[in-house]
Amino acid sequence: MQNDTVTFVIDQKEVRARRGQTILEAAEQAGVYIPRLCHLKGLTPHGSCRVCTVRVNGRYQAACTYPVADDLVVENDTEELRTLRRDLLEMLLVEGNHFCMFCEKSGHCELQALAYRHSIAAPKYPHLWPRREVDASHPDVLLDRNRCVLCGRCVRVSRDVDGKNVFGFVGRGPHRHLGVNSRRGLGGSDLSADDQAVTVCPVGCLLRKRTAFQVPVGQRRFDRQPIGAEVGAGAGSPQPSESPMQ
C-alpha cells in the first residue's frame, strides 16, 4: 500500500503533508504563509495570478496547483521571490483602475493588503488606465470591471458552488474581461445578492449594494494585521533591511 504522507522541505523547514495536497495547502497547515490572490480555500485551483509562485527544486511553480511529493525542496520566503511577487502585484495595480481612496472595499481588499504586506508605496510601472465597463443594472449587486483582477473566483464559485454559471471570461490577452450570462447585463442574470459568488471577490469588483463603509477605519479586516498573519510568519513580511518607502 502506498504511504499516505509525504515529507518535503519549505524554507528550510521539514513539513509532513497528505499526498494529494498542494504545496500551498500543506504549507498553510504547517504555519507557513504563501501569498496568493486568485486561490481560495475550497475552490478548484486556478493558477492564474502567479502571486503564489515558489521555487520547487529550483523551478518556478504555482504553489496553489503543484502537488506535494517526497523530497521536494521549496523556496518561498526569499528575497528573489518577494521581489518577483512585488513586481506581479505592481503590474496588477497598474493594469486596472484602482482608486483605493474611495473604493468601498478598501481595508478589506486582498490586492491592497498584499501590496501593503509587500511594502509597495507606489507602483514603479506606468499605469495603463484602461477603459472598462461598469454594470449597475442589478438591483442588489454592483459590477465594476475597473477593479477586476481576473482571478476567476466568481466564475468558479458561480459554477461550482452556486450552480448558476453567471460569470465567464470573454476575450483574450489585454482584452480579456469578465462577462455576464445575460444580454441585459448583471440585472438580467440569475444572480442573487445572497450568492456566494458575490462575497468571494478579493477586490471591489463585485459588491453588494447598500453595504458600503459599514466598518469604521481602524477596524477593517487588514487595518492592523497584514494579510496571512493568521497563518504564520511566511513570505513578504516586511524585512527591516527593506525600506518600505523608497
Binding site: 481612496m101 473604493c103 478598501s106 501593503y116 511594502s119 477605519v217 492592523r224 516586511p238 518600505p244
Partner: peptide, 13 residues
C-alpha cells in the same frame, strides 16, 4: 535614520 514605517501607517486611503 532609515525610514521604517510600521504596518498600520502605510495606507492607500
Amino acid at each position: 535614520r532609515p525610514l521604517d514605517l510600521p504596518y498600520e501607517l502605510i495606507k492607500y486611503d
